[in-house]
Simulated assay, not measured.
Amino acid sequence: MACPGFVSAQRYAREDGKGYLAVYEMATLGVMSSPAYKVVKEQPSELTAWMLKNVTGFTRYLADESFVKAQPGAFDPIDAPVLYAVSFTVPAAAQAEFDSWYETEHIPLLMANPDWLMVRRLRIADGLPEPYTHLALHYLADSRALASPEREKARGTEWRARLAANDWFKASYTVFRRQGPRQLGRG
């Protein structure tokens, strides 16, 4: 977080206990090629070097934010206790319709539930191991929002059914719980 351009970071644990997630907020993706970041990457601390040798199953996605919708109010939804991550691999020919559905129909229906605090849509620029193109981060006050009538309505529309009939409309869905405080950039 000391590298210029790193704004904040938040750690999460999977609700099912099978892994972790860290979300880093950066001013731009160009931060990843900055001299300061290269030093951190190429000369890791002793603890980071140990972790890189002993922890397996890493995934990493670099993405640009393309859309944000938040509930009005004083609470900063980025600090929500639950993060629901949804990843898709959308073919280029379907991206315009997919984006239109997600932003004009799906998100407004979800956000009719007051526990659905914010949705951030991201275009994946680079990542491994899956070839995802789109990521949606849903910030929730409570994971019970996933079983709400509003979510059921959002998943039951004709437009969604038409998109879901495509083979590519197979998403990866994961629920995470926030772990510890948000780390703020110092650089």
Rank of each mutant, 00 (worst) to 15 (best):
residue 145 A to H: 07
residue 131 P to D: 10
residue 153 K to T: 15
residue 138 H to L: 12
residue 159 W to C: 01
residue 158 E to K: 14
residue 150 E to K: 11
residue 149 P to I: 11
residue 131 P to M: 11
residue 159 W to T: 13
residue 142 D to I: 03
residue 147 A to R: 04
residue 155 R to C: 01
residue 149 P to H: 10
residue 153 K to E: 13
residue 159 W to A: 14
residue 132 Y to T: 03
residue 161 A to S: 12
residue 146 L to M: 11
residue 148 S to W: 11
residue 147 A to F: 12
residue 136 A to I: 06
residue 159 W to M: 02
residue 157 T to R: 09
residue 136 A to M: 05
residue 146 L to Y: 01
residue 158 E to V: 11
residue 135 L to W: 04
residue 144 R to I: 03
residue 134 H to C: 05
residue 156 G to N: 13
residue 143 S to F: 12
residue 138 H to C: 14
residue 156 G to T: 05
residue 162 R to G: 08
residue 156 G to C: 05
residue 144 R to E: 12
residue 130 E to D: 15
residue 130 E to R: 13
residue 134 H to N: 12
residue 151 R to M: 14
residue 151 R to I: 09
residue 160 R to W: 00
residue 140 L to Q: 00
residue 156 G to L: 03
residue 148 S to C: 03
residue 162 R to T: 09
residue 137 L to Q: 14
residue 157 T to L: 07
residue 133 T to A: 09
residue 138 H to Y: 15
residue 160 R to F: 08
residue 139 Y to Q: 01
residue 160 R to L: 11
residue 146 L to N: 07
residue 143 S to M: 11
residue 139 Y to G: 03
residue 142 D to Q: 07
residue 153 K to G: 05
residue 158 E to N: 05
residue 155 R to W: 08
residue 160 R to Y: 04
residue 158 E to I: 07
residue 150 E to V: 05
residue 159 W to L: 07
residue 146 L to T: 00
residue 141 A to V: 02
residue 155 R to G: 02
residue 130 E to G: 01
residue 157 T to H: 05
residue 139 Y to V: 02
residue 158 E to C: 03
residue 159 W to K: 12
residue 147 A to W: 04
residue 148 S to I: 06
residue 134 H to Y: 02
residue 139 Y to W: 10
residue 156 G to M: 08
residue 136 A to H: 07
residue 159 W to F: 13
residue 135 L to R: 10
residue 151 R to S: 04
residue 152 E to D: 13
residue 151 R to C: 01
residue 133 T to I: 02
residue 137 L to W: 10
residue 134 H to L: 06
residue 158 E to A: 15
residue 160 R to C: 00
residue 135 L to D: 03
residue 138 H to G: 06
residue 160 R to V: 03
residue 148 S to F: 09
residue 148 S to P: 05
residue 140 L to Y: 02
residue 149 P to W: 10
residue 141 A to D: 10
residue 146 L to W: 01
residue 152 E to N: 12
residue 155 R to M: 15
residue 146 L to S: 06
residue 152 E to Y: 09
residue 139 Y to P: 07
residue 151 R to F: 11
residue 142 D to T: 12
residue 147 A to M: 13
residue 145 A to G: 02
